[in-house]
Design a protein around this nucleic acid. Structure first.
Lengths: 143, 143
DNA sequence: TGACAACAGTTGTTTCAACGTCTATCGTGC
DNA sequence: GCACGATAGACGTTGAAACAACTGTTGTCA
């Protein structure tokens, strides 16, 4: 419950920020993931499986981002089943614009805590969920 | 992100459990809150403001619980604006049935951590969200 | 008293996530 | 080559959340 409450409180700030850019946190993470492999691309479902929380339909999430020109999708010729997804320049630009805002948001969220406390919190959270991670899914949690 | 990830992982277990009883975590909390004042009752919106995450429409959430006979609503005569909500025997019985399951679920979620670690984690989480709590809202987080 | 703001809930609408099912494509063994 | 299962993704439907607008009720103050 404590975890839930804390999550809920901190999420409010983030959501407010992302809302300014008409993005959900989930969409932001998808974009960030794509940037991490840029200029390479990724198959649709690979994105879904690497996101923080499971997203059972990537299709529609990516649809919206594609409509806004933030990414492109292309069906591969070698294997016509997979659809490769890659960031566009517009997508990169948006992410760059967001970087500062996200940093600032994190500051407002957790800036009042000492770096030692944050480290310890991170460690404990990781320990808490350790038995519940599926080995298959490394996740992209890095800060 | 770490918080998000951990929250998401642990929530999965809870949701699976509540789903067996056709409840959401939010509904469960509303019931638990009502039990905490039983046999007294509470106005509809008072419930909403005390839940872990804000719930902008209590009406429909309570509708479903009322349809299942878990609670009763009654418009007060002194002030015909407020609707008092109270648990029924069926509601109490369901909660009692859930108590054991919830405990077991918590064990599976966090049983691998030492009690000292849990205490520390609780403390840090509370510290993390402290500046983001509105003073008006004491919240019912107690474990 | 009568207008008006504040209050407590309700209802409507739009949007989004969850779930299962479906289509197209590919690999494999016969 | 062809039936079969597995894979990658798309789609339709359903149910819940978000936001806003609305109804009914009460307090207040000119």
């Amino acid at each position: 419950m404590n975890l839930w409450r804390t999550y809920d409180r901190l999420k409010l700030l983030e959501e407010a920020m992302f809302a300014e850019f008409d993005l959900s946190a989930q969409q932001y993470n998808a974009l960030r993931l794509l940037r991490s492999v840029h200029p390479q691309t990724m198959p649709t479902l690979a994105i879904g499986s690497r996101l923080i929380s499971r997203a059972p339909d990537m299709t529609r999430l990516l649809d919206k981002l594609e409509q806004r020109g933030l990414l492109v999708r292309e069906r591969k010729r070698e294997n016509r089943r997979v659809v490769e997804v890659g960031l566009t320049q517009a997508g990169l630009a948006l992410l760059e614009e967001l970087d500062g805002r996200v940093q600032e948001c994190h500051n407002r969220q957790l800036g009042h805590m000492s770096s030692a406390s944050l480290k310890e919190l991170t460690r404990l959270l990781r320990e808490a969920r350790r038995p519940h991670e599926d080995a298959a899914n490394p996740s992209l949690v890095d800060h």
